[in-house]
Computed example of a mutant assay.
Amino acid sequence: MSPAVITLLLLAGVSEAAGRIVPLAVRRPGVSRTLLIRLLIMGGVVEAVVFGLWPLTAWTLAGLLLSSPLPGYDPLWTPGLVAPLVFAAVLAFPMLGPLLHVLLLVGVGLALTDPFAAATGVDRWTAAGCLALSGVGLAVAVEAVRRLVVRLSVPRAPEPVG
Rank of each mutant, 00 (worst) to 15 (best):
L138Q: 13
T57C: 13
L10N: 01
V82I: 12
V90M: 10
A12I: 10
S32L: 00
L85C: 07
F51P: 01
V154Y: 00
L96R: 11
L131C: 01
G52V: 05
P55Y: 05
A157C: 00
L152V: 04
V31E: 11
A144I: 08
L85F: 07
P98I: 01
W125Q: 12
L100C: 08
E47Y: 07
T113C: 03
L99N: 03
V149S: 10
L152D: 03
A12G: 08
S67H: 10
S68V: 05
L65A: 14
S153C: 11
Y73P: 00
S32A: 05
V161Y: 04
W77A: 01
S153D: 13
L148M: 06
P71Q: 11
V161H: 04
A157T: 02
T78S: 12
F116Y: 03
L56E: 14
R124G: 10
V46W: 12
W54P: 02
L138G: 13
A141M: 09
L40D: 08
W125A: 15
E47W: 06
G63T: 13
S15T: 04
L112G: 09
V161L: 06
V140W: 15
V46Y: 12
L9E: 08
L105V: 07
L39D: 12
V5N: 01
G109K: 10
G162T: 09
P55G: 05
L53Y: 00
V86P: 02
L81S: 15
R38G: 15
V90W: 06
V122Y: 09
V49S: 00
L112F: 10
A117E: 09
V22Q: 14
L105Q: 11
A48H: 08
L99E: 02
V26I: 14
A118F: 15
L10Y: 02
G44A: 06
A48Q: 04
A139R: 15
P69R: 14
A48I: 06
L152Q: 05
A144M: 10
A18F: 05
R20L: 14
A58K: 14
L11V: 06
V22H: 09
